[in-house]
Design a protein around this nucleic acid. Structure first.
Lengths: 231, 231
DNA sequence: GCAAAAGTGTTCTTCGTACACCCATGG
DNA sequence: CCATGGGTGTACGAAGAACACTTTTGC
């Protein structure tokens, strides 16, 4: 047996911040195995399709979001021999970070796709199908560490956002509270992270806040450090 | 076409530090395609085998090293439709960090396996088979960043090593020069990184140096920072 | 005016860096 | 006794943490 046949799928950990909690996109399975259980969105890679393209296609089908709207990156690959009881399936997991969407699952294939809080989903008991709980955990951990040394927190925000909105992302993802004043100084001082716009907004209340767009850098140096010893 | 058949392989980026340069293990291909070219060691995942197990098996076959001797972690997965001209192959790349070995390829299957300097291998011109240059680059980049926030540099050292030997690893992998005195203070001060042993050695010349073993921590906080703007 | 959030200044402490200095060996 | 590397002390400056304070809106 030189090269046994495998099925290859992509699964997506799509994260967003809403209602002061981290949420992930899940779909209700319509068929066996795990029928009726929640699972990460995903599907088979087509025979002439690159892995990244398959992930982008699934994301488009499930959420209507295009690759340009959200950050997508490869997460890890899972291939335990019996992770799918039907056959040998290797799945390439992707992590996507999306802003909070007005109509989160509009125009999608999956009838029963919805946002659910990560805390709920990882609560042992009501577990996800397959090894998806493990994949979700890996995605959340990746997101947490990426906020430290990349400007990816902005991927959770609308195109123009305030410093406070950005800080809320950090607080929700890290489960920490950050000093608004030091945070403001730090991120506005980070070269290339934020581009100021002319506009301001009062949507957070109080004095009008400057709106920023995401800058061109992909790496923050020095990184923002998350306070030690939080969830 | 619901689940087209794929072949799944593992490929290994095995890195070591020798002669003051970063080296990777490569094998000469004995068959088409890319016959006679250098490639990363690897092979097909068997039908009942987990991905990590396949990587460990290939490592064992190619180097005689067991999982206990070296650090092995999943790197990334590559599956461009025509990356192998014979068929659709998805490869899960693994990164392994090994100490400098007395007889690097003793007791191996691959007749023509050897260490070659990463600088040579990535020199455009004499390129590796398939997309292995890209995979090697990803492995080296992963190793570089992992040295910052994990104690993995010790994986390049023998079981008992001196601070200077550890510093040489950092210098070679980062392509930077580090102040011996500040480095000494920093790593000996990092809680759980190094466990002092009773023994000393003069193998580096000069005054006898304390020998250390690797400690239990998996994450360094605060991280060691690599000097900005090096190769 | 008052509450609430934006944004700036200031102080204190911690940590990285640079570098002087002494120690312990081999030759 | 000298070269070589091991290891410690110290001084300076940059950066983080804590928090007082002024600014600008909505109500």
């Amino acid at each position: 047996m030189t090269h046994p046949p495998f099925a290859v799928t992509v699964d997506l950990v799509v994260l967003t911040v809403r209602e002061d909690a981290l949420h992930a996109l899940v779909v209700k399975r319509g068929e066996a195995p795990y029928r009726g259980r929640w699972a990460l969105p995903g599907g088979f890679v087509q025979i002439d399709e690159d892995l990244d393209a398959a992930a982008a296609r699934e994301l488009q089908e499930e959420t209507g979001l295009s690759r340009d709207d959200v950050h997508v990156e490869q997460l890890a690959t899972y291939g335990a021999p019996r992770r799918d009881p039907r056959m040998r399936v290797v799945t390439v997991a992707y992590l996507a970070l999306a802003p909070d969407l007005p109509s989160p699952t509009a125009g999608t294939d999956a009838a029963d796709a919805r946002w659910r809080s990560v805390a709920d989903l990882l609560d042992s008991g009501r577990s996800l199908a397959f090894d998806h709980a493990e994949i979700l955990r890996a995605g959340v951990e990746r997101a947490r560490s990426k906020l430290e040394y990349t400007p990816l927190a902005a991927a959770f925000c609308p195109a123009a956002f305030t410093i406070t909105e950005l800080r809320r992302v950090y607080q929700v993802v890290w489960g920490a509270t950050l000093d608004p004043r030091n945070f403001h100084r730090k991120v506005t001082g980070a070269d290339g992270f934020l581009i100021p716009t002319a506009a301001t907004t009062t949507r957070d209340g109080g004095r009008p806040a400057m709106l920023y767009r995401c800058g061109p850098v992909t790496l923050l140096s020095p990184p923002l450090m998350r306070p030690a010893g939080q969830s």
